[in-house]
Write a protein that binds this DNA or RNA. Structure first.
Length: 214
DNA sequence: GTCCGGTGGCACATTACGTCA
DNA sequence: ACTGACGTAATGTGCCACCGG
């Protein structure tokens, strides 16, 4: 399956112990700076608030956790950069941060989260793809089972099939069942080599999994 | 060459904030 | 005004690779 990346086929289990990870203390909502996405702070304010955060955290170690929304332009540039490369080297990170007027750490975090979102989306797509494939195989299996039943029934009293060309009875080994149209057909290869018992089901394409939607 | 501690980067899980229906 | 769902920025933790002593 070329569609599926190798890494995604392995499952990793992680056990997290509740209460093990230290979490910051809950803060009263009044301590949170209100930010309206429609009234985004100016770039200067943005930077100032970021630096403010850094200072606060360095002073008492318990900085209020503020969440800043990225502007559309910042998001656009980050997305553009992500399309080119899913990881950044320190120089790229620094220059991108400078360009976006963000801290390098914020750019780094954005890329980490973006990679995680990307992977999640990919996993969901693969899940859908496998579901559809499973459905397709189930259906194919059902039809083949039915075909086997029909062939077994035919074996009890096989009707003589005459060649449409010569009107002569055809050997059983030259007959195959086309699962697509469910019609008995002759197979050229087996007709030439009567000893062959190869069963030609249909074109290989009908056995391929469904195309993964993008 | 090997060991060891420090450091940086990443994946992953989780938390918490902002927005919207 | 309130609330729950959702998206996502931010944080915490563990793992790994690399480097210098």
């Amino acid at each position: 399956m070329a569609v599926l990346p190798g890494s995604s086929s392995s499952l990793e289990l992680t056990i997290s112990v509740p209460g093990f990870a230290s979490s910051p203390p809950l803060l009263p909502s009044s301590s949170v700076k209100e930010l309206d996405i429609n009234q985004l702070p100016s770039e200067e304010e943005w930077i100032a608030s970021n630096m403010e955060d850094e200072e606060e955290s360095s002073i008492n170690g318990e900085a209020p956790r503020k969440k800043l929304r990225l502007t559309k332009e910042q998001s656009r540039l980050l997305e553009e950069s992500f399309r080119q490369n899913h990881t950044l080297n320190p120089k790229q990170k620094e220059s991108l941060a400078m360009q976006l007027k963000l801290r390098a750490r914020q750019v780094e975090v954005w890329f980490q989260n973006r990679r995680a979102r990307s992977k999640l989306k990919q996993t969901e797509m693969e899940c859908e793809y496998l579901k559809r494939w499973f459905g397709s195989l189930t259906e194919q299996n059902r039809r083949l089972q039915r075909e086997v039943e029909e062939l077994r029934a035919m074996k009890v009293g096989p009707p003589t099939i005459l060649s449409p060309h010569t009107s002569q009875p055809l050997p059983a080994s030259t007959l195959t069942m086309c699962p697509r149209c469910e019609r008995v057909t002759t197979t050229a290869a087996t007709a030439v080599v009567p000893t062959s018992t190869t069963a030609t089901l249909s074109s290989p394409k009908s056995h391929q999994p469904p195309e993964a939607s993008s």
